[in-house]
Write a protein that binds this DNA or RNA. Structure first.
Lengths: 198, 198
DNA sequence: GCATGTTACGAACGTTCGTTCTATTATGTC
DNA sequence: GACATAATAGAACGAACGTTCGTAACATGC
């Protein structure tokens, strides 16, 4: 009954790791099966198509992101404190080399599929919209709490925060710059300092 | 004698266009040949290996970037004016859908190869370092000209500018957000305004 | 412990991949 | 216009791709 679910989870964990290195399109059933010491057909039977495997892999990564970055932040008092934790968790997420040695799968897939219509892109888009909305909401709460100036544009600030994350991810991975994280941190601090209510 | 060079250029132009959509790894010799109505082997003879094709394609994109974004900015007076033109050209570059319908090939390849050692990654790294250095230099000139505060950190500002570009590219392509460019513009303006010398 | 249904395997399918030959056609030079 | 050279085509290669199918091994509920 639940032996299937068990190996399915095992497969998806390995799939996230592999796909983060070679991309969702580069993720091949054969090599994934070899990593897990499974037969190609045995693994395939769990999904039925490669696209489904890609979708499930992406969903796995998304829910891990939600669990690692977002959920913990909800326990922090709303306003600036929560926003700070959110950003800190996010930074930690993109610099995790353990479970995703190839960097953040979601960011990689976003670049890979930004011009390929289909279910994968739709899933990415839905996740991205949800993420942006949640950050904008956290910013709005910070305004309501009187932590940020009322004229702050939540979407604009969200845009700029995302840019810092992207730059940190890029610099850490391609350039291997160890200062990327502190650069991101000070950019974040300055961004919030400007908009902090007096 | 120079017929070869001619078709080679034709191939590389199409390769940049195709690779921007499917990635440098997804770029296959067969489909590229079909697009150009060439035989697979005939096209292959121009390069000798797929990796060489990838390298030449990336070099083509890099030199086009240099030509479109950087070179024109050198004619603008140094300091803030040049920096503004640089950023504007860059923004225009990432939103060009004509020759690279899949977005900026360099950015896509940076994500694709950030964890794949080899010649492609080395080329990306060299290009990125050159770009960062050039921007930091432009910023330093703006400081020297008295346009920016002397305590401005060129590398930190370069980092943040790059983040804005990345965010704009992402939002325009995945989210299809038409406001991405103006968001980037106002982020840029504020970034410079803060550091403008009185 | 047996029956039953789920789970995994192995072989094979047709395609496409990058690459290597050989042969044929175009091109540039005297 | 003939000749050397460069450029393209065509066929074939082994390997890997996603996918299908029949069958053996297994785990589960009685």
């Amino acid at each position: 009954m639940h032996k299937g679910e068990q190996t399915r989870t095992l497969i998806l964990n390995e799939a996230v790791s592999l796909a983060s290195q070679v991309g969702l399109e580069g993720l091949s059933i054969g090599s994934l099966a070899a990593r897990l010491r499974l037969s190609k057909s045995g693994l395939f039977a769990h999904f039925g198509s490669k696209e489904d495997l890609q979708l499930q892999t992406l969903k796995q990564a998304q829910s891990r992101f939600e669990e690692s970055v977002f959920r913990p932040a909800l326990k922090i008092p709303r306003g600036l404190p929560r926003l700070r934790v959110l950003f800190a968790n996010w930074l930690e997420w993109i610099s995790q080399g353990a479970q995703a040695p190839g960097g953040c799968l979601i960011l990689a897939a976003s670049v890979e599929y930004d011009d390929r219509p289909g279910a994968v892109r739709d899933l990415l888009l839905a996740g991205q919209r949800e993420l942006r909305g949640a950050i904008a909401k956290a910013i709005r709460l910070a305004i309501d709490e009187g932590h940020l100036k009322p004229e702050t544009d939540p979407w604009q600030l969200t845009f700029e925060l995302f840019g810092i994350i992207l730059a940190a991810h890029h610099d850490k991975r391609l350039l291997g710059d160890p200062r990327a994280l502190e650069r991101a941190g000070s950019a974040f601090d300055r961004l919030l300092a400007e908009r902090s209510a007096a």
